[in-house]
Simulated scan of single mutants.
Amino acid sequence: MKKLLTLSVTLTCFALITCAQNVIPLYPDSIPNSKPVPDEEKSETNDKGYITISKVSRPALTVYLPPKEKANGTAVIVIPGGGYRVQASTHEGSDVAKRFNEMGVTAFVLKYRLPGDVTMINKEIGPVQDAQRAIQLVREKAKEWDIDKDRVGIIGFSAGGHLASTAGTHFNHAYIKVGRKVNLRPDFMILVYPVISFADSITHMGSRDNLLGKDPSAERKAAFSNELQVSKKTPPTYLVHAEDDKTVKVQNMLLFASALQKYKVPFDFYLYENGGHGFGMNNPTSEVKWMDLVQEWMVKNNWIK
């Protein structure tokens, strides 16, 4: 019995060490656009067993490597939602990363800074700085993780979808210091019940307020309404939403799809009739698994080889 207990403790310690090695700070030195404040990050578990984290001021990437025999060189950066107030780190984060691992895709869950005047000099650019740095870091370490630099995608949920679509439409503007030849453009995007527009009529007001403040100018609202930022260089995109979503109106997704179509950017989508908001990978109202459809889309478009 004592030997079994010792073995259990040893394995637990080994698991913790392994896990710790897989968490990488986004910035090796100082965090840009950051104020020197204590780390007040905390996590909570709700009645569904989902973990959310709040007050994030130290951004990081958690690396999820697929089994070597399955690895195909594709990478995806996973951005959980939470209204730019918290981050849904399990059902829109680690669970999604593990599903990508089953596809042979290397996944990285991004813990991005949550906007706040206390922790940041300019809170509206903090999250996109972290998304761009994540893309830069994954490509910098591509050889280490056996990743193809030309197959680095991004997936975002809800406000995380807003951040992902910001990375996918603002890549020509570097919010962090990078060399001229650094590629900040995701190769593909997957946006799940995403906040897209900051227009008064359809935006998720909580996300907009948290990122831009209570009374942003028309110019700032337009700058971060990502349906207005689409161009012919926007990455190919897969979109998922539910028609009855009362939190983030489906018009967000439809406007983005319309903009993609206008600029002849390849896209596909799945629209659930029901399901509401925040269902993660599993919409309880339908037998359709949208992640299976995403996998088919990725294979069809050679993102998975």
Score class of each variant (00 low, 15 high):
152 V>F: 04
152 V>G: 03
152 V>W: 03
152 V>N: 06
153 G>V: 05
153 G>E: 06
153 G>Q: 04
154 I>H: 06
154 I>D: 04
154 I>M: 15
154 I>T: 14
155 I>C: 06
155 I>W: 04
156 G>A: 04
156 G>I: 05
156 G>L: 06
156 G>S: 04
157 F>V: 03
157 F>T: 02
158 S>P: 08
159 A>S: 15
159 A>H: 12
159 A>Q: 12
159 A>I: 12
159 A>K: 11
160 G>C: 11
161 G>N: 06
161 G>C: 04
162 H>A: 10
162 H>V: 13
162 H>G: 08
163 L>V: 13
163 L>D: 09
163 L>E: 12
164 A>K: 10
165 S>V: 13
165 S>T: 15
165 S>K: 01
166 T>Y: 00
167 A>G: 00
167 A>D: 00
167 A>I: 00
168 G>E: 14
168 G>D: 14
170 H>W: 13
170 H>P: 04
172 N>S: 10
172 N>L: 04
172 N>C: 00
173 H>C: 02
173 H>Y: 04
174 A>I: 10
174 A>Q: 12
175 Y>K: 07
175 Y>I: 13
175 Y>W: 11
175 Y>H: 15
176 I>N: 05
176 I>C: 07
176 I>W: 06
176 I>F: 06
176 I>M: 12
176 I>V: 14
177 K>I: 07
179 G>P: 02
179 G>M: 04
179 G>K: 13
179 G>W: 02
179 G>V: 02
180 R>D: 15
180 R>W: 00
181 K>H: 12
182 V>R: 06
182 V>T: 15
182 V>Q: 13
183 N>L: 05
183 N>D: 15
183 N>C: 07
183 N>H: 09
183 N>W: 02
185 R>F: 01
185 R>S: 00
185 R>G: 01
185 R>D: 00
185 R>L: 00
185 R>Y: 00
185 R>M: 01
185 R>A: 07
186 P>I: 04
186 P>N: 01
187 D>Q: 10
187 D>C: 05
187 D>E: 10
187 D>M: 06
188 F>K: 04
188 F>R: 02
189 M>Y: 11
190 I>V: 15
191 L>V: 06
192 V>W: 10
194 P>S: 02
194 P>H: 01
195 V>S: 05
195 V>W: 01
196 I>V: 15
196 I>Q: 12
196 I>E: 11
197 S>R: 08
197 S>H: 09
198 F>E: 03
199 A>L: 09
199 A>H: 11
199 A>R: 14
200 D>V: 05
200 D>E: 15
200 D>Q: 14
201 S>G: 05
201 S>F: 01
203 T>M: 13
204 H>R: 10
205 M>S: 15
207 S>W: 07
208 R>E: 13
209 D>K: 11
209 D>V: 12
210 N>L: 02
210 N>M: 01
211 L>E: 09
211 L>M: 13
212 L>C: 03
212 L>S: 03
212 L>K: 05
212 L>E: 03
213 G>H: 08
214 K>H: 08
